[in-house]
Design a protein around this nucleic acid. Structure first.
Lengths: 350, 350
DNA sequence: CTGTTAGCGCGTTCAT
DNA sequence: ATGAACGCGCTAACAG
C-alpha cells in the first residue's frame, strides 16, 4: 500500500534535473549549496527553477549515495549500554546540542552488541560507553580500519582511538570519606558486573577507605544488584531492613543512589537526616530531584565529551585537526547536597 | 592520528579481491553467501582464500554502497520523543528483540525533529511516536515519496503509512472510575502540552468521569507539569501538600505516576493505603516496582508494534506482503495492583 | 560448475 | 552550466 500510493518511488536527482531542464550537476550544486545562491556558477533564475522542481517532486538527497562519494555520513553513533541510566540521557542531550548546529545527526545504538553493527554502518564518529573484555580486539581492529572511535573506559589505552577516562578511584574515595565524617555503619550499593565486587575501582574505593578508617567491612552491608534501577531499589531495601541498618549508603552509580533514596523514603526514613546517601557520576538528574543528590563526579564531563566526538567527526578530511590528546582525563569533584550533608561532631550518627 | 595509524583506510571489496587473487564478484558472492538463483557456486578453496583475505584486511562491507544498490539498509529507525519515558524503553526493547534475529539494526533518533532527518537517512522502516500538528504535512509527503512509516498517533488517519492507535479514552475512563469506587477527592497529573488541559483524551476522561459522578472539578487538583519526571514529581508534591489533599491521584502517564509515588512516600504517605495512585500506559516498569503500579493500558502493545514495523521493513521488495490493515487498534485493560487496590465500602476513603 | 566481465544505481566533482 | 568519471558493492549475463 505504502509503495503503491501516488508517486510511490523516491525521486532522484535525475528526475529533478529533467523537470527543471538542467543537468544533474547543476541540481547537485544548487541543493548542496556549494555553488548555489551567491557563489560563482549557478544563476539565480536557474537555482529557483531547480528548487521549485525539487520541492514539487518532494526530492530529498539520498544520504547513502552521498556518503559513498564524500565518505561522510553527517552522522555520529552513540552506542549506549544502559539507556535507562540518566548518564546515557546526559550523553545524548549534550551530543545533540553540539551536533545539530553542525548538521550532524546523532543516532543511538541501544544494543550492547556494537561490534557487529559498527563494522558496516558508517558514521563519522562513534562513541562507545562500555567495552567488555572480549570486545577489545574487535575495537582495535575497527580503529585500525578506519572507524573513528571515542571510547569511554577507565582501563584502556588509546590505540588508534580516543579514550575518555573519568578516573573514578580518587573521586569515589572522596565520597566515602565524606560519609566517614558522620558515620561508621556505611553500606555500599554496586552492580554485580564483571568489575563488580573485586575489580571495580568504585567498589575498591569503599573497601580502602573503610580499611583506612579502621572499620571492618561487613558482607551484609554490600548490596549487589543486577544493574537495573529495580534491582538497586531491592538491594537498598534489603540493606536498610537489617536489624542494625547502616546510617549511610554509598552507591557506585547515581541511578542506584536515586533508587536508594526512594527505598529509604518508602521505609519511612528521612534522607539526609536518618540516613545519608551519596552517589557517583554527577548526573543532572540528581541535581534536580528532591532531596537533591550528593554525589561525586567529573566536571563539565558531558560537554567536553560531545566536543571531542564532534571534533573527530568533522575532522575526517583535514588530518591536521585530528592531532591532539588521545586521552581525556577528568578531575572529579565532591558535590555536597541534601541527601548527604556535611556532618559536624554535633550531628554525626555514631 | 586515528587515520594515520597502520592501514588507516577502510578496505574495499577490490582490495580483498586483489589479495585473494580473484574478482570482486567472487568476493561479493562469498561474503554475502549467495549466488544467483542456483545453489552455492563458489568452490571451497576459493571461498577460503577470500575469507582469509577479508579477515586479514579487516574488511567489512560498506552499508552505504550496499544500500544504494539493493535499496535496503537493514535498518529501522525509531524516532522517540521522550527517551526517559519507560514507554520508549519498552518500544526499544521489543523492537530490538524482534529485529536482531532478522539481521536488522534498530537505530534510535532521540531528536524530536525527525522531519529533517527522515528524508535523507534511509531506513527500511521508521517508527514515529509523536506527530505535532505542523508536522502532519511533512509526514504525508514522506510517505508519498517512498518512506515506509509506522506512526503512533490517536488522531491520525493512515495516508500511505500505518497508524497505530491505542485509543486511550475508554481505558482512561476505566482508571478514573476505578478510583471513584473508593475516593471523592481525586487529583489529576497531566503534562501541559498542546493536547494537555483541554484537548487530551486522557485528561478528558478525568473530567467526564468526575462530571458523571457528580463531583465538581477543582482547579487546584489538576497538576500540570512540563513532561519531565522531575516536573511530575514537583506537581505531585504540590497537590499532595494541599490542606485538604486528595486521597487519590490519576496520572495520565506511567512515569508521572511513578514520580507521584515517590513524592507521596517522600511526604510520609503509604501508597495504596493513605493515597491511591494510578497511571496510564501499562509500562513494564510499573509492574516491577514496589509498590507495583496500578495502571490501564493496551495488551501486548509493544510486541505487536514491533512485529508490524518489521513486517513493513522486510516487505519492501515483495509488494504482496505489504497488504493488510493500515490501522492497528488496541483494546485497553485495567491492571489493578498495589498502588491503587480494590476498595470496598469498608476501605473507601470518604 | 566455477569464475569473470561489465554495467547498474546514487550524488558529487573535475574538466571542459 | 554541463558531460562524464568516480566511489562503492551488487548481480545479470557471459566465458571457460
Amino acid at each position: 500500500m505504502a509503495k503503491a500510493s501516488s508517486t510511490g518511488v523516491r525521486p532522484t536527482i535525475r528526475m529533478v534535473a529533467e523537470l527543471a531542464g538542467v543537468s544533474t550537476a547543476t541540481v547537485s550544486y544548487v541543493l548542496s549549496g556549494r555553488r548555489g545562491d551567491g557563489g560563482p556558477g549557478v544563476s539565480d533564475p536557474t537555482a529557483e527553477k531547480v528548487k521549485a522542481a525539487a520541492e514539487r517532486l518532494g526530492y530529498r538527497p539520498n544520504q547513502a549515495a552521498r556518503a559513498i562519494r564524500t565518505g561522510r555520513t553527517n552522522t555520529v553513533i552513540l552506542s549506549l549500554t544502559m539507556l535507562s541510566d540518566p548518564w546515557s540521557l546526559s550523553v545524548i542531550e549534550s551530543v545533540q546540542k553540539a551536533a545539530v548546529p553542525l548538521g550532524i545527526t546523532p543516532m543511538i545504538l541501544g544494543d550492547a552488541d556494537w561490534v557487529k553493527v559498527l563494522g558496516t554502518h558508517n558514521a563519522d564518529a562513534v562513541f562507545v560507553d562500555a567495552v567488555r573484555e572480549e570486545q577489545r580486539d574487535a575495537l582495535r581492529k575497527l580503529a585500525e580500519h578506519g572507524t573513528t572511535l571515542v571510547v569511554f573506559d577507565e582501563g584502556l589505552e588509546p590505540e588508534g582511538f580516543d579514550v575518555i577516562r573519568s578516573i573514578a578511584g580518587p573521586g569515589c574515595r572522596m565520597a566515602v570519606e565524606h560519609l566517614l565524617h558522620g558515620h561508621r555503619r556505611i553500606a555500599c550499593l554496586t552492580p554485580a558486573t564483571a568489575s563488580g565486587t573485586s575489580g571495580g575501582s568504585r567498589y575498591r574505593a569503599y573497601s580502602d577507605a573503610l580499611a583506612n578508617a579502621g572499620i571492618p567491612e561487613r558482607e551484609d552491608y554490600v548490596g549487589l544488584f543486577d544493574a537495573t534501577s529495580a534491582g538497586a531499589y531491592a538491594a537498598a531495601t534489603r540493606v536498610l531492613s537489617l536489624p542494625d541498618r547502616p546510617t549511610a549508603i554509598y552507591a557506585t552509580t547515581d541511578y542506584a543512589a536515586v533508587s536508594a533514596i526512594n527505598a529509604a523514603q518508602r521505609l519511612g526514613m528521612a534522607v539526609g537526616t536518618d540516613v545519608d546517601i551519596i552517589g557517583v557520576g554527577n548526573t543532572v538528574e540528581g541535581e534536580r530531584m528532591s532531596p537533591s543528590l550528593s554525589t561525586v563526579g567529573p566536571v563539565d564531563f558531558f560537554d567536553k565529551l560531545a566536543r571531542l566526538l564532534l571534533r573527530r567527526a568533522t575532522a575526517q578530511s583535514s588530518p591536521e585537526a585530528t592531532a591532539g590528546p588521545a586521552v581525556l582525563d577528568f578531575p572529579w569533584h565532591l558535590f555536597v547536597r541534601e541527601s548527604a550533608p556535611h556532618r559536624s561532631a554535633a550531628t554525626r550518627l555514631y
